[in-house]
């Protein structure tokens, strides 16, 4: 029995630490798109990675090195597939599949529904999840490669926007983080031409005695500071 080989608890703990190390490195190396699940193969690779990383804990005859080699091979596969899809649209069609039009101009395309194996109840469920009660409210519905259905409602059902009413708006500017968990992010401060003294002064105006007590602080495009205490 293979189990006997690792009944020695210490060896098992060592293995676990090794596996932890693998998880950490893979976590950093793994492409972001895998956890975004943009296509079916992202999902398969992700679960494969987890299984391979945990293998030395399950089976005593699997060495850490074997698991690492296998994962590197799988990672190489994932990267080359993604690259291939990036540079060739034909390859992309084969690897990730194509979005499928399920509803066009308010009309359900039965042929595509069949081809994508989407029953009517599933389409209706997705519509409800998108906040629409009925097929008559839908302009387009598209089955994306990640398996979710995106829905475009008819234009008369779009929320009214500021532009529609001619309301003057100021451009959206993304806020920048200045303090995180009590630590000042000097890079961000410098980029915006502020310094620590300025931050201290501005926050003390709002009643902050010590910067270390602040959990997060950010500044928006209009120079407005916003912060939250640690406790």
């Amino acid at each position: 029995m293979v189990v006997i080989a690792i009944t020695d608890l210490w060896q098992f703990v060592l293995r676990a630490v090794g596996v932890g190390g693998i998880f950490l490195t893979v976590n950093i190396m793994l492409p972001r798109r895998t956890s975004g699940l943009f296509a079916g193969y992202d999902l398969m690779f992700l679960w494969l990675f987890g299984g391979l990383a945990a293998a030395p804990l399950v089976n005593g005859s699997v060495e850490l090195e074997q698991s690492i080699t296998a994962m590197l091979a799988v990672l190489a596969c994932h990267l080359s597939l993604s690259r291939l899809a990036l540079y060739s649209t034909t390859a992309a069609k084969l690897i990730t599949g194509q979005p499928v039009l399920l509803v066009e101009n308010g009309k359900v395309i039965r042929k595509n529904m069949r081809r994508a194996l989407v029953p009517a109840w599933m389409l209706l469920a997705e519509l409800r999840c998108a906040g629409l009660s009925d097929l008559s409210q839908v302009d387009y519905a598209i089955l994306e490669t990640c398996g979710r259905i995106s829905v475009i409602p008819k234009s008369e059902l779009w929320p009214v926007t500021a532009g529609d009413l001619g309301i003057k708006t100021s451009p959206v500017v993304q806020p920048s983080l200045l303090i995180e968990d009590g630590k000042i992010l000097t890079d961000n401060l410098k980029r915006l031409n502020y310094d620590v003294q300025w931050l201290r002064r501005e926050l003390s105006k709002q009643g902050v005695a010590r910067l270390e007590d602040v959990y997060v602080a950010s500044i928006d495009g209009h120079g407005q500071l916003c912060f939250s205490y640690k406790d």
Partner: peptide, 9 residues
Amino acid sequence: RHNYLVAAG
């Protein structure tokens, strides 16, 4: 990502 990995493990 590591949440997935651990779950898969």
